[in-house]
Amino acid sequence: MNPSPEDVSLPPEVDVFVDLDAEPEAAWSAITTAEGLAPWMGTGSSIDVRPGGLVALPDPVGGATRRGKVDRIDDGRRLDFTWWPALRPADRTEVSITLEPITGGTRVRVVERRPVLARTAATATAPTVAAPSGTRPGNAAAPPRGGTARLPIGLWSWRLAVLTVATCLSPV
């Protein structure tokens, strides 16, 4: 199996989103408070919401308790953190969660990438930090609204046909 040209046209990062039937304030609580995190990141989750704050997430879905550190906060809109499995601290990745108001709810978008090692970046003639997800050109093409949110696959081939089910956006 040969890689296709599109395979390498975008940075190797995961980019998924879900549309929630909830106000941005409620969504922000769900990603920043112990009570809000518990149902999806596990009981005992905590994020100290300030730059450098500690992150502790049981993360039952990922199957390994995770630790982390808050990198950036844009109150109510964006939370960036670096995290790693508690038992494998070298295996760290960067996560950016952004909230965007949409009609009838909130879009929660998650981008996760591996950090670029200084050694690798130094060799580049034009080292670049991947653009924040909000400014990516693909965002111009609004995904269809409805029960299923979908990214334009041609533009997002690294994302392996992202298809996040918006379970609560049932049309009234």
Binding site: V14, V16, D21, W40, R159
Partner: peptide, 22 residues
Amino acid sequence: RWLARVESDWQGRLDLLARSLS
């Protein structure tokens, strides 16, 4: 492999998140 695994994990988490808010 990494992209597939990480993406699948996030879809699982976001599914739970959506349920918890609805």
